[in-house]
């Protein structure tokens, strides 16, 4: 037990001093996950809204696949991206394996389906309400998708934050395609896994606390934004 409390004290000291090794890891984690969320949103938001609005052959199949992909295991995504980016893979010549870019690609693939599927679920309700009015006004396809995304913006913030939560918490994909290389591709989750097995509990716990706070902060933000939106728009 004293081991644990010592480790915890050391962890707090690490956080309070914001040591450079810790800062580097937290920084890279945020950078990778934020860029992945940004790219995934850029694709997933319009894709989700388009699936809510447009009728075309194969739409239902696509929706089912997208929903299934929400539960995609990170290690499988890691493996697939690894195979594509490895020397003998189709994109091997780019030399991206074991770089932060590879980690961004993996996380983007991981969370894009989540953002798209949740966006569809959310905007489809709004579309039921708007459909006749939009058809009556003669709104074009682009206009319709943009309007749905804008009018559903407060729900979609929660969707994006859910994607961010998933990205920042996953360890399997970034471990495989990043390789957990010190000062290059080491992020919070991979460090925790490594340092725990090495017995360096202080760093692992310190990062664990930061991750938890991040999750808490993200959820609090989502909650507050929704509250404000409800108050304003009903």
């Amino acid at each position: 037990m004293s081991d644990f409390s010592e480790a915890f004290a050391a962890a707090l000291a690490l956080i309070l001093n914001f040591e450079s090794s810790l800062a580097e890891i937290v920084g890279l984690s945020l950078q990778v996950s934020l860029v992945a969320v940004f790219i995934a949103s850029l694709i997933g938001l319009p894709l989700g809204a388009a699936l809510a609005v447009f009728r075309f052959p194969g739409r239902k199949t696509l929706v089912v696949i997208l929903n299934a992909l929400m539960g995609l295991p990170p290690v499988v995504v890691g493996l697939i991206v690894y195979l594509i980016l490895s020397r003998s893979g189709p994109l091997g010549t780019l030399g991206l394996l074991f770089t932060p870019t590879a980690m961004i690609i993996a996380q983007t693939l991981l969370i894009m389906p989540i953002i798209a599927a949740l966006t569809r679920q959310s905007t489809v309700q709004l579309w039921h309400e708007y459909e006749d009015q939009f058809k009556s006004l003669g709104a074009g396809p682009g206009e319709t998708v943009t309007a749905l995304l804008w009018d559903d913006r407060f729900n979609l913030v929660t969707t994006i934050l859910a994607g961010f939560g998933r990205a920042s918490a996953e360890v399997g994909a970034v471990m495989i395609v990043g390789g957990n290389i010190d000062h290059v591709t080491r992020v919070m989750t991979t460090t925790i896994a490594l340092e725990t097995s090495k017995g360096n509990l202080a760093l692992a716990l310190g990062l664990g606390v930061i991750l938890l706070c991040l999750a808490l902060g993200v959820n609090a933000a989502a909650y507050l934004i929704n509250e404000a939106a409800l108050k304003r728009h009903g």
Binding site: E129, Y130, D132, Q133, S136, L137, A147, D151, D152, H233
Partner: peptide, 11 residues
């Protein structure tokens, strides 16, 4: 143009 029984208000 058309006006519906329950007005459709954009947010």
């Amino acid at each position: 143009a058309m006006v519906f029984q329950r007005p459709v208000m954009l947010r």
